[in-house]
Amino acid sequence: MLVSVEIFMLTLLFSLPLGLIIAFGRMSKNGIIRTIAKLYISIMRGTPLMLQLLVVYFGPYYVFKIRISPGYRFVAVIIAFAINYAAYFAEIYRSGIESMPVGQYEAAKVLGYNKVQTFFKIILPQVIKRILPSVTNEIITLVKDTSLAFAIAQPEMFTIAKQIAAAQTTIMPLMTAGVFYYIFNLIVAVVMEKVEKAFAYYR
């Protein structure tokens, strides 16, 4: 249970900012940067997260012949989840940023705001409000995706439930795990609703 929550929290902590950086790359005027960002998003969204997990975990051994230390397992999970989710968040950010009316940029420019101020003071706060429903969707998927960590035998909630279920030939541990995921997501939904309400003071 705790491990699942850790994976969830750390993934959000790293993927949300990383996604913004990738979104900038995706919208860059520089064609090379734009193409790299596009390719990155395409691969991350186009291949299974489980495969990405395996590559991140076993890659250092097969490619560089580095011995994998046991502590790397959890790190690999976080890396794989963060870079995968960053791709999805990048596209969500982009949709939000591109939906902003050009008048907001123009008003800011005429008032003398520089580009950094314009983005962080004027644009981003409004973008966050706009993309919250899509982000909520993604976060709910993430809660359930944490169970994929079993692919590299990271002992998280689903892995353990499966082991107990196999040992005791009963489906109850899996059902219990299901209930936990559900409650987890219920909490996520309530929190995100609160966040959306916090942004409801303007339209």
């Binding site: 009316p101 008048g103 907001q104 123009e106 008003a107 008032l111 003398g112 705001y113 520089n114 101020q117 003071k121 004027i122 706060p125 409004q126 409000k129 303007y202 339209r203």
Partner: peptide, 23 residues
């Protein structure tokens, strides 16, 4: 502007003062 282009997430007061303070 024709379409005002006020900043919707700022109060009326902050719409006016923010550029003065931060710019």
């Amino acid at each position: 502007f024709q379409s005002f282009n006020l900043f919707p997430h700022y109060s009326v007061l902050k719409n006016i003062t923010d550029a003065l303070v931060s710019v």
